[in-house]
Amino acid sequence: MGGEFDPRRHVLVPKHEILSEEEVKEILARYRIKPSQLPWIKSSDPVVKAIGANPGDILKITRESPTAGKAVVYRYVVKG
């Protein structure tokens, strides 16, 4: 086997970004929620490992959608 494969290079993996603190605040205020009410993503997820996110971070995922063209969703990174 060659070097470690970066899952972000795969065509089917959408764009993941770690949100800054201000952005997190904005998101939580917009939906009026606690971070735990967001959908979760495990810290063992290959993409989470690849971008170096830690439990407690919130990810912004931008992906193609058959209905809306582009859809933005958020994930709360949990231990696992």
Partner: peptide, 22 residues
């Protein structure tokens, strides 16, 4: 009312219903 789909505990399932809110 904000277009999100949530379960009975207020956890978000979809950020915008059907991703386009239609």
């Amino acid at each position: 009312y904000d277009g999100t789909v949530r379960d009975d505990r207020g956890r978000i399932v979809q950020f915008l219903y059907g991703e386009d809110g239609v």
